[in-house]
Write a protein that binds this DNA or RNA. Sequence first.
DNA 1: CGCCTGTTTGATCAGAGTCAAAAAGTGTGG
DNA 2: CCACACTTTTTGACTCTGATCAAACAGGCG
Lengths: 227, 227
Amino acid sequence: MNLVCETCPVRDSAACSVLTEKERGTLSKAGRTRELERGELLFAAGDEEAACATLVTGALKVTSYDADGNERILALIHPSGFVGEMFAPFPSHDVVALTNSRLCVFARSEVEDAINRYPQLTRALLRRSQEDLHAARQLLAMGSGRSANAQVGALVLALAQAASNSPCHFAQRFDLPLTRGEMANMLGLTIETVSRAITSLEKMGGLKRNGARGIELIDPARLEDAD
Amino acid sequence: MNLVCETCPVRDSAACSVLTEKERGTLSKAGRTRELERGELLFAAGDEEAACATLVTGALKVTSYDADGNERILALIHPSGFVGEMFAPFPSHDVVALTNSRLCVFARSEVEDAINRYPQLTRALLRRSQEDLHAARQLLAMGSGRSANAQVGALVLALAQAASNSPCHFAQRFDLPLTRGEMANMLGLTIETVSRAITSLEKMGGLKRNGARGIELIDPARLEDAD
DNA sequence: CGCCTGTTTGATCAGAGTCAAAAAGTGTGG
DNA sequence: CCACACTTTTTGACTCTGATCAAACAGGCG
């Protein structure tokens, strides 16, 4: 399906927002929208024909697998995020939808053309890439030294932040986009430990659970430095 | 001191290698070389006037500090690597020399100018940024699930790779650029555990120690999947 | 030589993993 | 709408890896 940028919810925040209307129109002819259901694979590591995409709605995970086939989540992608490797010969990680999602997909050659044609697009992608780098490093920092409770608390806060529209504000009530297994996996913990940590955070008054996925933040500070 | 690109050991691999001789000459007038001794601080998180730099020789670490003041190493930078945040209002991490190092330093405004003037430089930086992102994610993957021995083994291999000139080849004998404490810190382990892991890897025939820092690889495969 | 920093080794302890099973949620078809 | 099957989450008991505390050891440098 062709792109309809006019009504795109991320038209002002995605990388393409730096283009003029005319340029955007040209680019939109090269791309296609794609809808994914939860669990559907967007790119697979080693794919022959690489592509890139901007996430419009939903959420994605970037994953790799260790020698024993255990999944490891390396990054979460939120709306207006960009995925795809423009330079490597092929993608090195799987990208999977965490929730039903809508994206703008471009063949890699199209992105390469666009980069050569629109320097401001290259700058926008550089900026995004640096933000991704920063996010990856924060994920590294989140794992270190802290107890399982603190790690889970920090992840819940990060997800609350992502769930709110504004970048430096927590959503009060929201649904976790990740299963316990996926949370465990991001933090290098087990499902049981994550479950126990959430129970413990609830008992100490940091949050309240609404079913398996629903979260209500009570006291964000208590999630930060849980014992 | 002014730059002397003619004899620069990374003139063909750093981001500036995509420039013509003439362009490079112009850019070199904007930058300065700087020498750092082991432990010296290049950028500090929150610095007012941000700068960027290309590493020529030596090694750097990018670090953050948690609430209790514990250092956490987020990335290692090797020669031809680029550090600095072009877009954030100020740097968010400290950058410190691991060994005596030489760099080309540019004020952020100079890099911004260069980016606007030379689209191919922007592309080169985008490429580097994606490589850094990939490295950060590999560091994430390195930490996950595996035993302490396996993590230390993987880190030693990664350092052996970095110590060799070619990217997909291990140095047979090399000196660790990191102290035990720094290794521990990258992996979220303790000094004692790292020390024990190296002892254990030596006992099982994966490597041989030469003093505190010297390493000789015996059997790389045994480092990969140490128990 | 003596001091200081970094590394190794040892003994003990606690936090997270593992194994196992119950409980809650989700979806399907009657 | 309910019954049933299936998945995900929670809880419990036990184990084990890696952290902690403590001390010996090695190397560099004044």
